[in-house]
């Protein structure tokens, strides 16, 4: 089962990963991080490990495991 890890402390909240996920498995977190932005959060589910979110992430904070 594939999964991703998002470094929520460093996330600046551009949400480009949310629009690029073909399965729609990333959402906006309910909690604020230390920057005061709501980071992107992995919901879990049927991640295929396509790495689209990590490829588009401008801050390189997403790791993909498969």
């Amino acid at each position: 089962m594939a999964k991703i890890k998002i470094d929520e402390i460093r996330c600046k909240g551009c949400y480009l990963c949310i629009t690029s996920c073909p399965q729609g498995l990333i959402k906006v977190s309910d909690r604020l991080n230390i920057k005061g932005t709501k980071p992107a959060r992995f919901k879990g589910g049927k991640c295929t490990g396509c790495s689209m979110c990590a490829i588009i992430c401008p801050d390189c904070i997403i790791q993909v495991y498969r």
């Binding site: 490990g49 790495s51 490829i55 790791q63 993909v64 495991y65």
Partner: peptide, 11 residues
């Protein structure tokens, strides 16, 4: 689990 995408080494 195999890490298939992460920060490149020279970054």
């Amino acid at each position: 689990e195999n890490l298939i995408f992460s920060r490149p080494r020279s970054m």
